[in-house]
Amino acid sequence: MRITEIFASISGEGTRQGAPAVFIRFAGCNLRCAWCDTGYSFENGTTMDMDAVLAEVARHGIPFVVITGGEPLLQEEELVPLLKALKGAGYDIEIETNGTRAVGAVQAYATVCMDMKCPSSGMSSDPALLATLRPSDMVKFVVADRCDCAFAEATLASHPTAAEAVISPVWGADYGEIVAFLMERRPPARLQVQLHKILGVQ
C-alpha cells in the first residue's frame, strides 16, 4: 500500500474529536478541493507492507487509529486486510473519506467520517452514499460561507442519513456568519471547528 505518513496527534475532526490518535495517511486522491491542506498526499507516498504499517502504529502505543488521505478507499484491496489486522489487534478505527466511494466493505471494522463536498471546494461527492451511513458514523460538510451552509441543509433534507451531521468551517472562514446561519435555519447538524488548526498541530 502507498502511505504518505504515519504520525500521532490529537484527532482534530470526526467522531472522536479531541482524542489522541495514530494517523495513517494513504497516498493518492481522486479530488482536488480548492481548500485542501494535504495536497502533498496527492502523489507522494512510500510503499509499505502491512507488517511495517502495523509495527509503526504499535510503536506509538495509542489504541485509536484514524485512516485518512488522500482518499484511502482508492486502495480498498490493501486497506481491508489492514483494517482486519488492526481490529484483530484491538484498535478502535475511524476512516475519513471524501464521499465518492462506497464504504460498505470497511464498515465492519471502522466508523466512517464522510466529507460531503460543498460548492466552495470546487468538487462534488455522491449524496446517495449518505443512506449507507450508520448512527455510529458521521457526515461532515466543510463550509466557507452561507452558500455552503445552504447546500449542506438542502443535502440533508433530500438525502436523510442515520449518521450525525456536522458543519465544519474552513480555516479562516467567517465563523460568525456560519454560526448565524445555524441559529437562523437550525439544520439537523452541529458545529465542529477544526481543532487541530486551533491547537497548531498536525
Rank of each mutant, 00 (worst) to 15 (best):
E43M: 07
F64K: 10
L83A: 04
L79S: 12
V106M: 01
E78P: 00
G28K: 03
K84M: 14
K87N: 09
N98D: 09
Y109S: 00
F42R: 12
L82W: 12
S41H: 08
I67W: 10
A85R: 04
R32W: 15
G70D: 13
P81A: 03
C33F: 13
A108Y: 09
V65K: 12
G70H: 10
F64A: 06
V80L: 10
R32P: 05
V65N: 10
T15R: 08
P72Y: 05
I93R: 02
L79W: 09
V57R: 10
V66H: 07
P63C: 11
W35S: 05
G45R: 00
V103W: 03
E43W: 11
F26M: 01
E96D: 11
W35E: 05
A19E: 07
P72N: 08
G28V: 07
I93C: 05
D51V: 05
R59H: 15
D49K: 04
W35Q: 03
I95M: 02
T111W: 10
Q17V: 15
V80E: 04
E96P: 12
V112I: 15
E56T: 15
P72C: 09
G61W: 13
A108V: 04
C36E: 13
S41W: 05
T97D: 08
G70I: 11
Q75Y: 09
A55Y: 06
T97C: 14
G28F: 12
L74R: 14
S41E: 00
A108E: 13
I67Y: 12
G18E: 03
A89Y: 09
C33M: 09
A58I: 10
A110D: 05
Q75F: 10
E76F: 07
E43Q: 15
P63K: 04
E71F: 13
V103C: 03
V22Q: 00
K87T: 15
V53L: 05
L74D: 11
